[in-house]
Structure formats: C-alpha cells, structure tokens
C-alpha cells in the first residue's frame, strides 16, 4: 500500500483487481480543504482510462513490476507476439491494450516489457527511434516556405509530419512520446 500523495507518473496500481499505470498526476488543494491528487490512469488490460481524485492520505495498492527484455516478433492483427530473450519463451499480448504503442514497434526489435505476476502489462519504447520512410509525396515545386511540412508514412504504418525535403527511403529519428520528427538520419 502507498499513500495517494506518493503516486507518480509511471506508478503501477491495482484497483478493483485490475492493473493500471498512472499517466498523469496533479495535486489539487481546494481552498481551505485537504490536499487531493487528480490522476489519469490507464487500465493495462482493457486500455480504459479512469480519472479518479483521491485524498493524498488515502491508501492505494501499488504493484511491483519487473522489466523483461523481449524480442517483438510480429502482429497477427489480434495479438502482438514476443519472445523472452533470456528464456526463449514466446508469449502474446492483445493489440487492443497497446494500440498507442503498436505503430511505433518494429518487427524483430528488442523492447523492455513490464511484467507483473507473469502478466505482460506494458511495453517500454525508446524515447527516440529511427524509422525508414515508406511513403512520401514529392515536395511541391516552388514551395519554399520555411517550416513547411508534409506527412509521410514509415515502415510500421506510423504517420509523421516532416520537413518537405525528406524523401521516400530516407531514415528519420522520431520522438515516440510526442510523435514528432527530430532529425534526418544519414547512415
């Protein structure tokens, strides 16, 4: 058990027997009242979002999780398939719970999977990742406005806004949290 006031972004909680991760946390002190914390939680089984408020003195059940290194094998449309790189054991997780992550994930790549009592709860993405552009329109001739952007698609199906000089087949670095283009990668 931890006090709600000790909860941070990224804390894992058990609420009504479902595991949740804390996505946002903000303290609120209603005038002349006790301190509260307003949370945005994501159910790691269903993806459902909860926005509870708790008194900072309330007790909440925290769960202890571990990170496992796993190779992402493929997506069959319903499940994401992984292999534990220590035990070579294969397992799958429902796509529905990781819809916000799947577009960033590359087949064959290693990821840290957050596991709680043998149940994979979350996938940790690197903050920045390199992707190959698979679809990009040619820049419109004469469009020389500084800061002009276009939308391209990368090998995972993710779409990103990039400067107009970026071409199909080139590699770009993308921030996986903000979904923003960082820079072109020359390799």
């Amino acid at each position: 058990m931890i006090k709600a006031g000790a909860i941070d972004k990224g804390t894992f909680l058990l609420i009504k027997e479902d595991p949740y991760v804390v996505v946002e946390r903000e303290f609120v002190n209603p005038g002349k009242g006790a301190a509260f914390v307003r949370l945005k939680l994501k159910n790691l089984r269903t993806g459902q979002v909860l926005r509870p408020s708790m008194k900072t003195q309330d007790n909440v059940e925290e769960i202890q999780v571990t990170d496992k290194s796993c190779q992402y094998l493929y997506n069959d449309g319903e499940s994401l398939h992984f292999m534990d790189t220590d035990t070579f054991e294969q397992f799958e997780v429902p796509v529905a719970s990781f819809e916000d992550k799947v577009l960033f994930m590359k087949d064959g790549q290693s990821y840290k999977v957050v596991v709680w009592e043998n149940e994979p709860l979350d996938i940790k993405l690197p903050l920045k990742e390199i992707y190959v552009i698979t679809e990009a329109e040619e820049a419109i001739k004469g469009d020389t406005v500084t800061g002009a952007t276009k939308t391209v698609t990368v090998e995972t199906g993710l779409t990103v806004k990039v400067p107009i000089f970026i071409k199909q087949g080139e590699k770009i670095l993308v921030n996986t949290e903000t979904r923003e283009y960082v820079e072109r990668v020359n390799t």
Binding site: P30, A34, F36, P52, S53, M54, K55, D58
Partner: peptide, 21 residues
Amino acid sequence: NPQNEDTWETLFHRIFVSLVE
C-alpha cells in the same frame, strides 16, 4: 471510495474535487 474516518467536510471535498470542480 469514501473512507470511514472521513468527516462531512472531507466527503464534501471528495465530491467537489472529483465531480464538481
């Protein structure tokens, strides 16, 4: 999720912070 030790004031603030504000 009100707690047994909550006073009227705490309960008021729970509802206020969660659903009104």
